[in-house]
Computed example of a mutant assay.
Amino acid sequence: MKDFFSLSKRVDPKIKYISSIKGVQSIPLILEVKHSIDSSIKRKLLRIGFKTKYEINFINHICGNLPIRNLDSLKALVEISRIYYDDKASLMGKTFASADGHNSNFMMKSQLLNGKGISIGFIDTGIHPRADFMKPRRRILSFKDFVNGKKDAYDDSGHGTSSAATASIPAGETGIVCAKAFNMINYGYYSDILASMDWMVEIKDKYNIKIVVLNFGVSLNSGNHDILSIAAEALWQKGLLVISCAGNLGPEKSTITSPGHNGKLLTIGSFDTDGAKFSISPWSSKGPVAPNLDKPDIVMPGFIPSESFMGTAASASLAAGFAALVYEKKKDISPDDVKSLLKLCTTSLGELKHAQGKGYMNIKKIEEL
């Protein structure tokens, strides 16, 4: 109980800073509920003016806004284990005008597998219902907008559409499920991200979602004790293979972003190739995360000419397509088994482990599983 009452452990340090800013009347928070989200804790939160935005059932958290003047009253509630600031994350992909000298079509497509029967979940900027997602069959199986509340699928940035299209290069028959948690300038609140994850858990069996792609990152120095990392690992425990980009903060070491720094997840960095030479992309974040934990796990091409898409988000999306091929071939296996198989199906670039992990995924080795 001593740790529970230590404010340094319970309360996100950023909350103190935000609450000290003159003129700030309320603060967006994410609350970890100690046991369950029941009527008792809801009443107590209501009494101190907390306005609930989401209940995140798969991890027992509540998101909402609290008047600054009642922050001490919130801290006094023993039912609340941790209090996080509802911060923003940014996506790790961007468009480019030219891909001169780069050929990311290197060993991308299988002649035997296409991901049929498997669905991939994207938490991104949305998805545009373009022709290749709709014909010859509709591959966009479900869409939910946590930013603007629109019903029909759309993408006001293009990042989510590029992510799904990149995953479709090796896995052109996969189903696509998309939660819009990021706005048109590629930023998203943690609360919308968590609500998107909760929705993925709710519908995963209905649409046979096997993989969730997290193409965002936050620079942190908190090990695995941040809310994005905790939630991403909880997704994994629900039976979903969680693929996270490593981040675009290279070339320095120890720059892996959250949630990709979580040892449980499959973390993807980027490499460049012209088909003959290979090198780690200069922007690709590198490990180690800890003395005994190297990241990324695997690297994939970071330039996708057909989508004018680059960054570790492009690499992670491509990795998701490869993972769908493993699920197609091996059917009902666990995320841990898929991660192990994908790491076995790699070819080394000859780079250091904290830069390349096991190397790049080799589609021929996946076909031979």
Score class of each variant (00 low, 15 high):
Met200Gln: 13
Leu369Asp: 07
Leu194Thr: 09
Gly263Met: 09
Ile118Thr: 02
Glu32Gln: 15
Lys144Pro: 02
Lys206Asp: 13
Lys331Leu: 07
Gly217Asn: 06
Ser81Leu: 10
Leu77Phe: 12
Ile59His: 06
Glu307Phe: 00
Lys53Asn: 13
Val326Pro: 04
Met361Ala: 11
Cys345Phe: 04
Ile30Asp: 06
Glu368Leu: 13
Lys339Arg: 15
Lys364Ser: 12
Ser219Arg: 11
Phe4Gly: 00
Thr161Leu: 04
Ile169Asp: 07
Thr166Cys: 12
Ser8Leu: 10
Trp283Val: 08
Pro288Ile: 09
Ser26Val: 14
Ala290Thr: 12
Thr346Gly: 02
Leu265Asp: 06
Ala165Ile: 01
Lys51Cys: 01
Val147Arg: 02
Ser90Met: 13
Ser229Tyr: 06
Lys22Gln: 15
Thr166Ile: 09
Asn57Trp: 04
Leu220Gly: 00
Ser334Asp: 01
Arg82His: 15
Asn103Gln: 09
Ala323Tyr: 09
Asn148Gln: 08
Arg130Cys: 15
Ala195Ile: 12
Pro170Ile: 10
Lys94Asp: 12
Ile120Ala: 01
Arg138His: 06
Leu141Val: 01
Phe271Lys: 12
Phe182Lys: 07
Glu173Gln: 15
His225Arg: 14
Ile120Trp: 07
Ala181Asp: 02
Gly93Trp: 07
Ser157Thr: 07
Ala355Ser: 15
Lys53Ala: 13
Tyr84Arg: 03
